[in-house]
Design a protein around this nucleic acid. Sequence first.
DNA 1: CCGGCGGACTAGAGCGCTCTAGTTCAACCA
DNA 2: TGGTTGAACTAGAGCGCTCTAGTCCGCCGG
Lengths: 352, 352
Amino acid sequence: MADRRPTMEDVAARAGVSRALVSIVFRDAPGAGEQTRARVRAAAAELGYRPDTRARLLGRSRTRLVGVVFGVRHTFHTDLVESLYTAAEPAGYELALSGTTPVRDEGTAVEALLAYRCEALVCLGPNMPTGQLGRLAAAVPTVVVARRVRAVGVDVVRTDDADGLHQAVAHLVGLGHSRIAHVDGGGAPGAADRRRGYRTAMRRAGLERRARVVPGGLTEDDGACAAETLLSGRWLPTAVAAFNDRCAVGLMHTLRAAGRAVPGAVSVVGFDDDRLAGLPHIDLTTLRQDPDELARLAISSVVERLDGSGSGKQGEGSGTGRELVTPPRLVVRGTTALPPTARRSGSPVRPR
Amino acid sequence: MADRRPTMEDVAARAGVSRALVSIVFRDAPGAGEQTRARVRAAAAELGYRPDTRARLLGRSRTRLVGVVFGVRHTFHTDLVESLYTAAEPAGYELALSGTTPVRDEGTAVEALLAYRCEALVCLGPNMPTGQLGRLAAAVPTVVVARRVRAVGVDVVRTDDADGLHQAVAHLVGLGHSRIAHVDGGGAPGAADRRRGYRTAMRRAGLERRARVVPGGLTEDDGACAAETLLSGRWLPTAVAAFNDRCAVGLMHTLRAAGRAVPGAVSVVGFDDDRLAGLPHIDLTTLRQDPDELARLAISSVVERLDGSGSGKQGEGSGTGRELVTPPRLVVRGTTALPPTARRSGSPVRPR
DNA sequence: CCGGCGGACTAGAGCGCTCTAGTTCAACCA
DNA sequence: TGGTTGAACTAGAGCGCTCTAGTCCGCCGG
């Protein structure tokens, strides 16, 4: 309507009260009578008044704003963003999103958030070097999700990768598999832990002699390559624990194309439980990284730094930050079954 | 370091100049000597000063902020967000993201954006009723992407759905198909246009007698159901144009599970070219909606409303807004092939 | 020698809120 | 009756910027 948005002043004039009173009403602060509140709200509604966040934040000492840096095209990141919204709300924080894209790097994204005076930063699987993260954390409480880093003042929230592979191996061993391979993630975040977890689990199961790690990666293509490697080897394993779901999908596709049934000839376990894994035509047994849980931990970490422990210097140089680790959950679907050998010789499980 | 972030005042003091001068330097405005600029910048760097966006926006008349409402879990939306970032930057606008989730509805998302005084809103495939969109557009220039709406003052940017189905049908006819069905999207945005496009294309190909629309939907499950319907019918079509990729994927899975080869027995075409379609194990022929193009059009629409056409009342009540339509592009992959009848004679499909 | 000009820089009034330190006034009590 | 209290409300000083309207000063032309 008008060329200027209505301000608090306008509402105050219309309701016949002072600006301060309008502020009180809109902040739900004590100090205003019921009828006055109603009158103010009515006036505001008539004018289509909407408090201006910029000014509101400026005037306030705290912004209660948590910046989130995420990869716009990572489905897991957007899942996390969703969970972060629901975790932040009850804690009384708002989210400021800043996405990274091939043309918008993390530096830019962080810079924008800092300029908005976010009180804390949540970085989802960041790629920036540890040093930079440390410098960041010196300026503002920072929590890294889904990447293992040790940097001064940086809190970390992540899934227990090693435990995930323990579960995967235990599940397969429980089905009767012994020739279980691992297609790893190379240098990807978490890959080292998963590899280690795989080895430990195999050792515990008394299968260390049969442990076999095949180079893989994060994408379907990497999985497909790993499958080629396996197929050209002396003998195929009867089960594979892949680095992640995408890798598992590529792997399965290549195996099936080569005439090896999944799970008939080879069982496959993924990791992440991303959106693909649950699709009926994929139906992948996998280890679920729970975004709700990770988001909850990330926000609680932020809240503790910000609201917790009195008023003193917050989160300053408290050594390498805390690390909150949550176990993944095994989701059994249709890509794992008894090993083919179970039908033959003296093994425990009877043929279906 | 300090418990307070440095302000312009601090920088000014350190550089021995006035606050206003610092402002000039940081806005790259004329009115400062070269050496002074350098001195100010140096002082700012030493203090780790960063201009405060909130205050900056408050003081300025324009915010140059474009609000984006998107579904956090829609991969196509996040693709668009990515493209919007790159389209907005050269136009001198910043993006403010506000996601919708199952617990954060569009109203909330829009409200937050408005409170930030965005100058325009870009809504990706919004679900809100037309009336609400109209009211929104009365307050701030609004462009809707990927949904066809006619509301006063609302600009629309969308893919030419009908044309997409023309292309799909033409492609299939070109391969020799004549029994081509369409699995539709029910009441989903774009579904009516696609259905219409299908019918028109069939008529033009002289196949109106063979046109057949099967109720579907947007998800894999919907596609699977549609496949059941088809399988239980008198005869199977040799080709199906599905509402979208996800629907196509569910459809293919069910067809294959029933022993019908894709594309051997049935060819399938999707729509969207979402992230799944290109995966090697899906390899779906589809119609690509180009996010870059849609984003470019959306931003140009915003820019025109905001910067274009002098200073007068901008975009106010100019009837139902403009509509920018861009054609999808056929991406031929592995799910379409010659019909089985091409190999034999008159009879349809042989019993499997 | 003076007026005028223009580049460099400053003072200070906003922008639309929040929030502290009041002021007012009816109710209550001794 | 006067004093106390507390709820309701207001005045006004910020918050950290932007931006208009200056001031200052060296320099040039007449």
